Amino acid sequence: MLRRPDSSASRVATATGVAATLVLLLTSCGPPTPPTPEPTGAGVSPRPSGSPSVPVYVADGTADDNLPLFAAVTGSVWASDQRASGRAYIDALTAAGFDRAAMQVTQDVTTVGNPAESLMFAVRWGDTECLIGQVGPSTGEPVTVVMPQLAEGRCLVGATRAIDW
């Protein structure tokens, strides 16, 4: 009868190899470490070129050019205690440079007086596009997109409230 050699050493070697492989995989799957900027003579780190730290309004740009600012304003209002107020989004977008006359917003409350599960607001951009935002308990985090305009230059389907303040 042949005896099999003791395989405990080979099991340990295999387990060690598997563990080492997992460690390598897990450490290589994380987000890349950003490079550490070199200090300048004035002791200030340079900013990466081409990426402003804060989105800006681009009056002669496209809807896509202005989506970062639209999203930032939407996120800022969403993070405030005015998150359920359509007027707060319109006022903040106006303050950021967007044209109030090109905006639409849905009602804050339902027909029976309950807070709306979803609030939508939009800015018509040019003759073909819209910046659209949606917030509310039913959406989770704010959603902002660029979409084609609907008929007659509208951005939102259905009844919207007058922006008369």
Rank of each mutant, 00 (worst) to 15 (best):
I90G: 02
S51E: 14
G97H: 12
D99I: 11
T106S: 06
D81H: 12
P39M: 03
V109I: 10
T106E: 01
R87I: 07
A92Y: 04
D64N: 15
A95T: 12
F121R: 12
F121P: 04
P55R: 05
Y57F: 13
G41F: 12
P39C: 03
L93T: 04
T36E: 08
P35G: 06
V58S: 14
A79T: 12
V58Y: 09
V112A: 07
G50Q: 05
L69F: 01
Q82A: 15
P37W: 09
T62V: 05
T106G: 01
D60R: 10
L67D: 00
L67M: 01
V112Q: 14
A88R: 12
Y89Q: 06
D91F: 04
L69M: 00
A71P: 12
A71M: 09
T110M: 05
R124G: 07
S80F: 06
R83C: 11
G97E: 02
S85A: 13
A79P: 04
S76Q: 14
V44D: 05
G113M: 05
P46G: 00
G43K: 01
V56H: 08
G97S: 11
T110G: 01
A102W: 00
W125R: 10
S118R: 15
S80Q: 07
N114H: 13
P55S: 00
R87G: 14
P68E: 00
A96H: 07
L93H: 11
G41K: 02
F121G: 03
D108E: 02
Q104D: 09
V123I: 13
P115M: 05
R87N: 13
A96M: 04
Y57H: 15
M103A: 04
P35Q: 10
Y89N: 02
D64W: 15
T40K: 06
V73N: 07
S51V: 15
A71H: 11
Y89D: 00
P48Y: 00
T40D: 07
V73K: 10
E38V: 09
P52L: 03
E117Y: 13
E38R: 14
P55G: 02
E117C: 11
P34I: 00
V112Y: 15
W125K: 08
D91P: 01
V54L: 10
S45M: 09
V77H: 06
S53A: 14
S85I: 03
A71I: 09
D99G: 05
D99S: 09
G97Y: 08
F70K: 11
A63C: 06
V77P: 05
G61Q: 02
